[in-house]
Design a protein around this nucleic acid. Structure first.
Lengths: 224, 224
DNA sequence: GAATATTATTACAATTCTGTCACAGTCTTT
DNA sequence: AAAGACTGTGACAGAATTGTAATAATATTC
């Protein structure tokens, strides 16, 4: 069920669009003011925002940047035709698409589907057991609780995540992490980092479930 | 250097668009037939395809699905105005955007930039100026030379990269980075991090080209 | 079981990161 | 031009990271 927030002053457009989008299987809520919109966004989760630029109190631009940066929800601008400035600025503010009024409802739906398809791919979240990595934000969490990995631990973890099942040799791992300036580091350095990483992500670091030792060959990730 | 393939029968449109897009800094090649297009795509790599639907031999739809499935290059449809069928079908075939003729060249450029931004995000490598971020490896480089960003600097940079063009307020940025435990940090902390980040990624940190200050509002990323 | 090789752990300085302060700039308004 | 608000900078301690060495633990081989 896709939830759409329609931010629009014009009552007739609200009525028409709500009816049409609902008939297309979307769940629609509408607001008209800037503060009202931001309040509703805090209370409820939406999948997409349809945003009229000419809001009565302030303009839609500030709402757009707030929506994009805080919630990461895709935004489609509804704009008066011929208002090229709006188009350009809208995109620069992070809008994902815009459509000029008057528009055909069917085209709007098509654009909605398209944007949802395009933006879905941008959120890159990987999981290993109960550990989640958001590579877009650069954050790691375990059971919803945030973990703090240092820069090198983070990169080491990513190497494992992107090579699940493969046995990674010491030299491969060393190369992957410490290749920055062709510097040589102690071979044991890796061992220590493995330990530190395990201590942060494993339930029982002494009996690691995620990063397994393959004696004589290296390390590998077993589980999905 | 962004390479665009323009597939269009109308010679005057080809001439005009080629000139305009070239002046905008794009590299443009054009073809007119279906087979010619597919041949050129095999020989050369393009970043984006502008595709007229009404090709003389066969229609543009089959070219579109070929481009998307074989090469994964984003496609923008050029369509006759009012041809709603084209719009809908085009999107369903995997087009990333469409624009109705006659269109303003500037709007086309805006859409081109937008699509490149949206589709670039899905891959693992993002660029801002001469700085490249590989979110799969967790590495950052500038002109091919590796940069070392601390964990927090890296996350701050990612926030900017994923919200290009948007003005990000101090509180938004603070929230995005220091929200891990709901701890409160000094407001100036962000200022200092901005400075440190600029010192690592900017050519001239005193005159930042990537992370711009928007006085009274926050910061934003301007360039592509 | 003893010897050996491999991996794990602990501990330790050197370095870097992190957050804050005080103050120096800069822009805007009056 | 002066005042006020906002942003940038340098410096500073405390904390964390980073790499290494020494030592312990474990598995493998003989």
């Amino acid at each position: 069920m896709t939830r759409i927030l329609l931010v629009e002053d014009d009552k007739s457009i609200v009525a028409n669009l709500t009816e049409f989008l609902t008939s297309e299987g979307y769940r629609v809520k509408s607001t008209s003011g800037q503060s009202e919109t931001l309040t509703l966004l805090e209370e409820e989760r939406f999948d997409l925002v349809l945003l009229d630029i000419s809001l009565s109190d302030g303009n839609g631009f500030s709402v757009c940047s707030a929506v994009k940066s805080t919630y990461g929800i895709p935004v489609i601008f509804l704009t008066a035709s011929g208002d090229e400035y709006s188009t350009v600025t809208g995109f620069e503010l992070g809008a994902d698409d815009y459509i000029a009024k008057p528009f055909r409802p069917r085209e709007l739906v098509t654009r909605i589907k398209n944007i949802l398809r395009l933006t879905k791919g941008t959120g890159s979240v990987m999981t290993l057991g109960d550990v989640t990595v958001d590579t877009v934000k650069g954050t790691v969490s375990k059971n919803g609780k945030d973990l703090y990995l240092s820069a090198l631990e983070y990169r080491l973890f990513l190497v494992f995540l992107n090579n699940r099942g493969a046995i990674l040799s010491r030299s491969q791992l060393l190369e992957a992490i410490w290749d920055i300036a062709g510097e040589f580091v102690n071979d044991n350095t890796l061992t220590v980092y493995i330990k530190r990483l395990r201590e942060k992500i494993e339930d029982d670091p002494q009996n690691p479930a995620m990063i397994k030792t393959v004696r004589g060959l290296g390390y590998k990730v077993d589980i999905e």
